[in-house]
Amino acid sequence: MAVIEIRSLKKSYRVYQKQEGLAASLKSLFHRQYRDVHAVRGIDLDVHKGEFVAFLGPNGAGKTTTLKLLSGVITPTSGTAHVLGFVPWERENQYRRRFALVMGQKNQLWWDLPAQESFQLHQKIYCIEPGAFQRTKDELVDLLGVGALLGRPVRELSLGERMKMELIAALLHSPEVLFLDEPTIGLDVVAQHNIQKFLKHYQQLRGITILLTSHYMKDVAALCKRVVIIAGGRIVHDGSLAAVIDRFSDYKVLTLQFADEQMPADLARFGEVLEVAAPRARIQVDRTEISRVLSAILSNYAIHDVSVEDPPLEEVIASVFAMSASPAQPGDAQAEHAADVAASAAK
């Protein structure tokens, strides 16, 4: 049975509609206009033990809201969810000992203290038996290579180092389910890669279930076999990363290297020309046309090298986002974005 089971989960916020100008502000003192913002509009999802699932979507699509619902931080408007058999927002201690949420934009470690002090606090809060605590901590510190930094105040760590410490803090109690909300945000390429490597290794080692949101396709490509795309509070795709490309992209990128500087002048008749730097050219070709175009080129020109590739993942995803945002409910994407903004502004 599924570790995470979500059925028609909905979350909407009532937000105060702010008007511009002083007069409107004064008026709003007495008469306020509210509107409902639907952050999550009915999600169904099953995630099985040991899966590493990516949650993709534009800003304000409802990814973070879903993770917060599954963590029990907020309560849904309607619908159900079970994680490990628990209803998250009942906030049972038994449940809270078995999962963890890591947010790339927030930190829970004590800012002025070395991370190891926060780790000890977690040991107490999660009632981790001292032997197990020591073993887990040593293992994590070793995997992430942060042994030398344990005694340094968190505020003196780099963003990447701090993220590693946050991960350790979240994993000390050996959670079976891990929610990662943009864990690599703001990190440089090397730090991103390190975190990816760690997550991949740790997930395989422990067989835990992970739900990850990220805007970096590299994260997703490196880590997740399964991708769930959420836009406008709904799931628009659930499947493998390759399937996303198959489904949402109808062209391939053809890279040609011509021999003897002999470049045809009218490349455009084969497809959209992306780049020409003689003797190399990149052409975007309709997927259904690819074999015809290839044979035409190969039979008419001397070619040194040729490659046929899928378009860059970022582009495909961007077009999926754009597609899902536009036709059905115009203005939805903005409304969802407003939801996030409003939710934070209302605080």
Binding site: M1, L84, E90, N93, R97, R98, C127, A132, E176
Partner: peptide, 26 residues
């Protein structure tokens, strides 16, 4: 919480991993 847990059939609950076998009540 115990009462809430009782509402679900016990078979529905995934067993905790050994590390989490700590007692539920604080």
């Amino acid at each position: 919480n115990g009462a809430a847990a009782a509402r679900l059939p016990s078979s529905f609950r995934l067993p905790p991993s050994s590390a989490q076998a700590a007692s539920a009540s604080l």
